[in-house]
């Protein structure tokens, strides 16, 4: 990386300090998740019945759980599960939502209004409850939870993608290539989607936090990650039983999760401000 680019980066960070902090937090957590096998001091699933519920100390920085597993290691490995499910939800929603939104906006007419009405309907669904019902019926698992939460978030992306597509459609270069006889798919691939992507990226960043929270809520209730998997929501839930003496058991994973989500939200806000300072759109609830 050249010196000037570094300087530009520092400038950017100075102008958007919140986004810079968010970026650092996200990078830190992502690094942790990737390197969990290397940096975790213990095997997250190794049981030691004689080391149960130890308080934080020099050997176990975050203490141990009810069967003597090292909590720090479980929180670190939990970053993998929580991030994976958060990103999975966002991936499902963004890919489907962008494709549908761009298509809908570009083609317009009847199919557009049909698609958008359908999206209105999906938005009116009580997402978390349907996700709970689905995971309860299909058997509690993180994959099922992610699938349900991902599908129900599609309309948020569709709306943004469609709105941007409508704007781009009016631009000269798009019209020109339309006149030249470019097909719908070609137009979408070459002209529309690449120009919609920055906005989608902002939405994705802001969505990751909400997605992690929703998945953790399912795990907390017992419908997401199943023991002995280390996932933040499941850890908080397990720690609930010991919260009177071993408050750190629930408190640490919760705090780490809050910081992670905070990082994503700061980054998302910053990106949005940079891209569209007047925008007032909200994160996905």
């Amino acid at each position: 990386m050249g010196r000037s680019r570094l300087k530009a980066l520092v400038d950017l960070a100075r102008r958007h300090p919140a986004a810079a902090i968010g970026f650092m937090v996200v990078m830190l957590i992502a690094g942790t998740a990737l390197l969990a096998p290397l940096i975790a001091p213990y095997d997250p699933d190794a049981i030691a019945l004689d080391q149960r519920l130890l308080p934080p100390g020099p050997t176990h920085w975050a203490g141990t759980d009810e069967v003597g597993r090292d909590l720090l290691s479980r929180i670190l490995w939990g970053a993998r599960a929580s991030l994976a499910v958060g990103l999975g939800i966002v991936a499902i929603a963004s890919v489907l939502g962008t494709l549908i939104g761009c298509f809908s906006g570009y083609v317009g007419k009847t199919s557009d209004s049909l698609i958008m009405r359908l999206m209105d309907v999906v938005m009116a669904l009580p997402g978390l409850v349907i996700a709970m019902a689905l995971t309860a019926a299909l058997g509690p698992s993180l994959v099922n939870a992610a699938l349900a939460l991902g599908l129900l978030a599609v309309p948020y992306y569709t709306r943004v993608a469609r709105a941007q597509t409508l704007a781009i459609k009016q631009l000269n270069f798009v019209r020109a290539s339309q006149v030249m006889g470019a097909g719908t798919w070609h137009q979408l691939r070459v002209n529309i989607i690449p120009n919609v992507l920055p906005h989608i990226l902002v939405l994705m960043t802001m969505h990751v936090g909400a997605a992690i929270l929703a998945a953790a809520a399912l795990s907390f209730i017992g419908l997401g990650a199943q023991p002995p998997a280390a996932e933040w929501g499941a850890l908080i839930n397990a720690g609930r039983h010991y919260v009177l003496e071993q408050w750190w058991y629930s408190a640490f994973p919760g705090l780490v999760m809050a910081i992670t989500v905070y990082g994503f939200n700061l980054l998302g806000d910053g990106l949005r401000d940079a891209l569209d300072p007047k925008s007032k759109s909200r994160s996905i609830g």
Binding site: A18, L213, A217, F220, I236, A258, V261
Partner: peptide, 13 residues
Amino acid sequence: TFGISVPSFWLGL
């Protein structure tokens, strides 16, 4: 922003 980042079940607890 922190408010919307905190898991409600954790905060309640």
